[in-house]
């Protein structure tokens, strides 16, 4: 049994008097202990909503969540609020994108860590402070004992993100979800944070779900990658296979359209035509069809299912040919 088993997760947002919108439309994936799984896609593909749904952090009203999220055997979606609160922090940790708004601006950093330790590990205050200092040191914040009494706004963006990671890992959760943790940071700071995450995850054996739009980040960090589009997973592969031979036209298109640092200047970028809003509903066919260079008649009649493909999964009637994929893939 995997550590986390997400089965057919659906999240439908509904505003009064309007049609529902399925932000997450039947997503299923597993996370094994110690594994790093990536959820990749652009804005609006449903990746963030997926993580919020798993952590039960969506608003109480205005949405309907269905499916199952089985963590170590129990379905998180069926737990009461109280039981879920116990789980959060202790078994499941989350790191968000914007550290400034994720940290409480009026409480010192130290207190935000000790709070978690006291609640979930029943530590007395003194012991918690020592542990908090160690944690800050482990995430690479210099002079940690001084930092305990400082407020979030006194730290830089990179340091805040480290503090957030410290809070998330304080109780040694078995699963850590990181939602675009480095998107708001400069690239050299991003490199530091990603290296830190990689080390910590390896040291503690924590499983990690990495949510990002940056394929470069995924290439360096994740064992298995899920590509999302329009609320569904369209391709899943082990990372080397995905980049060597992307078979879904969307994945293939994304890789071809991203400028690579090590690519020569003459190579033209091949954009995906249209934009994310040029889609058709999954009931009517494949949501990517309007933009897909490989679209055939079947694509506008019904949505393709996820079928096994080279050890992973693929949702496409007319995938990119292996020869072409290999050419455009890893060079």
């Amino acid at each position: 049994m995997a550590l986390l088993e997400v089965r057919d997760l659906r999240v439908v947002f509904q505003r009064r008097g309007e049609q529902g919108f399925a932000a997450v439309d039947g997503v299923s994936f597993d996370v094994e202990p110690g594994q790093t799984v990536g959820l990749v896609g652009e804005s609006g593909c449903g990746k963030s909503v997926t993580s919020l749904a798993i952590m039960r952090l969506l608003a109480k009203r205005g949405n309907k969540v269905s499916g199952s999220v089985s963590f170590e055997g129990s379905d998180l979606l069926k737990l009461s609020d109280r039981e879920m609160r116990d789980r959060r922090g202790r078994d499941l940790g989350m790191v968000f994108q914007d550290p400034l708004s994720s940290l409480n601006p009026v409480i010192p950093i130290g207190l935000q860590i000790t709070e978690v330790l006291e609640r979930h590990r029943d530590m007395p205050r003194k012991k918690a402070r020592i542990e908090a200092t160690e944690l800050l040191d482990k995430v690479g914040i210099p002079d940690p004992s001084r930092r305990l009494t400082e407020y979030p706004h006194q730290l830089s963006g990179g340091m805040r993100q480290r503090a957030l990671i410290a809070i998330a890992l304080a109780c040694r959760p078995r699963l850590l979800i990181a939602d675009e943790p480095t998107t708001a940071l400069d690239v050299t700071i991003q490199a530091q944070i990603l290296a830190l995450l990689k080390d910590l995850v390896q040291d503690t054996g924590t499983a990690l779900i990495m949510i990002t739009h940056d394929l470069g980040v995924v290439a360096g960090l994740c064992d298995e990658v899920n590509v999302l589009y329009g609320g569904k997973i369209v391709e899943r592969q082990e990372r080397h296979s995905l980049f060597a031979e992307p078979r879904h036209p969307y994945t293939h298109g994304l890789l071809a359209s991203i400028p690579r640092l090590d690519a020569g200047r003459g190579e033209k970028l091949v954009p995906i035509r249209g934009s994310v809003s040029d889609n058709i509903p999954w009931e009517d066919g494949c949501a990517f069809a309007p933009r897909c260079p490989n679209a055939v008649a079947a694509c506008r009649e019904s949505a393709p299912e996820l079928v096994p493909e080279r050890g992973g999964l693929l949702r496409c009637y007319n995938p990119v040919l292996p020869v072409v994929a290999a050419r455009e893939g890893t060079r």
């Binding site: 210099p142 830089s156 990179g158 340091m159 400069d186 690239v187 050299t188 700071i189 991003q190 490199a191 530091q192 990603l194 290296a195 940056d214 394929l215 470069g216 980040v217 995924v218 290439a219 360096g220 990372r239 080397h240 980049f243 890789l255 991203i258 690579r260 640092l261 090590d262 890893t330 060079r331």
Partner: peptide, 22 residues
């Protein structure tokens, strides 16, 4: 520091990590 969408490159290249803040 710039992530490259290529696992082979990412695994093999040497990283120069800067310390601290700007």
């Amino acid at each position: 520091a710039i992530p490259v969408p290529d696992p082979v490159v990412e695994d093999s290249r040497e990283q120069i990590l800067l310390a601290g803040d700007l």
